[in-house]
Amino acid sequence: MQHYRQQLRTRRIYTAISIGIFLVVLFYSLQFANDANAGKFFERLPYFFDFIRSFVPDSPMEIFRAMFDLPSPYADGSLKYNYTADRHYITDTLYIPNFIYQLVITINIALVSTIIGSALAFLLCFFASTNLVGAGITRFVVRRIMEVLRAFPEIVIAGLLTAILSIGPIAAIIAITVHTIGALGKLFFEVVENSDMKPDEGLRAAGASWVERVRFAIVPQVLPNFVSYTLLRAEINVRASTIIGAVGGGGIGEVFRLAIGRDHAAKTYAIIILLLVSIIIIDQFSAWLRRRLIGQQSFEFGRGAA
């Protein structure tokens, strides 16, 4: 008992020392960051919410008008209140509001990137799994390719592609697809490596080919996790496409950058609300789709392991 108390006391001392070192490093890191920020961060911290307080639309209804391209009573000929100029007309009278149109572009970028990226990651992940191809050159090469693909953030790839391919959604699609292949590929092959190999051994004993073993022994086990990861990646890609849009990738990110840069409060809040609603809808749709594919019983308490 005395030995246990001594060990406990020693562990507490080491913990206290570690926390102390961490706090010292954190303090000097913040001080360095403040100096790198021209020494204004801590001085300006009390005014952190001043921008939000001043960035207020003339009326709450202005947010609604900006969202649906309705005429504004504050119209003075400037872009700030000229919501109707950006309508996308389908017929002479029927139109799509600009922000909703741009949001559809952003979601399309994310969905196309997710579909292409997840399909290629699905094909590559089996060649990166040790339990299917061993620890040879094939696994090594495929894993290194995935590491390279996910090494750079989407916005960096998009910036490079924008300089080559010009500004537009194509650069955003390629950038997000490249990162999706690397990120999902790693998650996929880790799931494959954790799968039960007994069905594979049975098929191998029956003389099945490698493709048949993967198709009938591995894929049925890993597919639910693959679906979950792909749906999660779709949500991430919606946010990524919004960010890339701000640097020339098109979609709602670009109009958001312009709105906040021009001090158009109503337009900015309208875009934020649309993004929030779209993320909630996508999240709910993903949950519904997972239930349809995996089965409702997997989500009921106490029955997942039955």
Rank of each mutant, 00 (worst) to 15 (best):
L8G: 04
R9I: 10
T10A: 14
I13T: 13
T15A: 14
A16P: 04
I17L: 15
S18P: 01
I19Y: 14
F22S: 15
L23T: 11
S29Y: 15
D35R: 13
N37T: 12
A38K: 13
F41A: 14
L45F: 14
L45I: 12
S54W: 06
F55V: 05
D58S: 12
P60N: 09
P73I: 06
P73G: 05
Y74D: 02
A75L: 07
Y81L: 07
N82L: 08
N82M: 05
N82A: 12
N82G: 06
N82T: 07
H88S: 09
Y101I: 04
V104Y: 08
G117M: 03
A121C: 06
L132M: 15
L132Y: 07
G136Y: 03
T138E: 06
V142M: 08
R143Y: 06
E147D: 15
E147P: 02
L160M: 11
L161W: 02
T162Y: 05
T162F: 10
I164L: 10
L165R: 05
P169Q: 08
I170R: 06
A172S: 11
I176M: 00
G182W: 00
G182C: 01
V192I: 15
N194Q: 14
P199E: 07
D200S: 15
R204I: 10
A206T: 11
G207M: 06
W210K: 14
V211L: 12
R233N: 09
E235V: 03
I236P: 00
G245H: 01
G250H: 04
F256L: 15
F256G: 07
G261S: 12
A265G: 01
V277K: 00
I282L: 15
F285D: 01
S286M: 01
R290H: 04
R291T: 12
I294K: 08
Q297K: 13
E300K: 11
A306W: 09
A306G: 09
